[in-house]
Design a protein around this nucleic acid. Structure first.
Lengths: 190, 190
DNA sequence: TCAAAAACTTGAACTACTTCAAGAAATACG
DNA sequence: CGTATTTCTTGAAGTAGTTCAAGTTTTTGA
């Protein structure tokens, strides 16, 4: 039970058997159906989600009414709105299941008591957040320096399977170009 | 001595007097001259920098040979390449002083021993990284949804003083448009 | 203090994308 | 299985920006 998250945690820190038991007792898996939301714009985000199986995404609706994906979360990723979570402010984002997804939803109150009981977990979440921030910096670099076609090819080389897994319009918006342009890139019409 | 960083840490966690002493003994301020680098592309980043006074920036040189700023770090900000730091891989970035800047440079070996001796610091760095990641997500949102002029005005409203403080071409690249276009925005010629 | 370097401005030509609209194809699920 | 919904495609017209080049202004530091 909960092997996925326990394995992931133990990639970064050591856990005592008693700590594993404690974790087990606090965690539970829930299933989010395709297209269901776990966070809507305007809500305060009190939960962190660990993706066990499936795919979540964080997106916004831009002024033209089009969805734009800011982040995908696949197996072994955490997804949340950290700013809303820390500042208790209304979120700017939606978080939704792209496909039917199993997550471990960790509420702030539960997580905070876990962090007190297993102080070593602080290190785990520190490393997760630092790596995520590092990845966000690289993402901004790619957005700044590559053309649309280059971003598509680069992503496809890095994550060949993932390209098949999500609708093209979601990936297009994640790479910051229109769904129509994605279609033309794929057809070689650019 | 080191009040800036001690105050910043104590915004998020409690420190015992003995811990403060220990910190004091490990920290030292160094001065980075305007335009000097603390990290160059290709180097492995082993240090985190806390800005006490002044301004640092992280930037890249794009394929056309133009510098593009990915991140500014002003007073009370940490700046580093977390990906290079964690993975021991060559950095994609330059980190440079925009103006002559006082930083506390924390080497990985020193920081790691501090984290062992003051486990509570893990929490501090967790929160710093989570907030930084949250800010990066918002940044991507702004890049995705606002026009160049909107990004400039938004930034100017949020950080009126900062706009005066750095060369326009650095801010232009941070907001992802050309220095020339910045000039036209400011002149109202758009 | 003053020369050199850095930063800013301007206009003209260009281009990598977007938007719109409508139809075709693929997929979900009752 | 079949239909409703979602996703993808295509071309034409438009635009928010870039690039280039040259001149001007401001700042730096010996």
């Amino acid at each position: 039970m909960h092997e996925a998250i326990l394995n992931h945690i133990q990639k970064f820190i050591h856990l005592e058997p008693s700590e594993i038991d404690l974790l087990e007792s606090c965690l539970s898996i829930s299933q989010i159906k395709r297209k269901d939301h776990v966070l809507q714009e305007g809500q305060i985000c009190n939960t962190m989600y660990f993706v066990v199986k499936g795919c979540m995404r964080q997106y916004i609706i831009n002024p033209r009414g089009t969805e734009q994906t800011l982040q995908f979360g696949v197996e072994n990723w955490w997804i949340t709105d950290y700013l809303s979570y820390h500042n208790h402010t209304p979120s700017h984002f939606y978080i939704q299941a792209v496909e039917t997804t199993e997550v471990i939803a960790l509420e702030k109150t539960v997580l905070e008591s876990m962090l007190v009981q297993i102080p070593n977990l602080e290190k785990y979440f520190r490393i997760v957040a630092q790596k995520a921030f590092g990845a966000a910096q690289m993402r901004i670099k790619f957005l700044f320096t590559m053309s649309a076609e280059e971003r598509y090819n680069h992503f496809k080389n890095q994550q060949p399977d993932f390209v098949q897994r999500v609708p093209q319009y979601m990936l297009a918006s994640y790479l910051d170009f229109s769904a129509e342009f994605m279609s033309k890139i794929r057809a070689g019409k650019v």
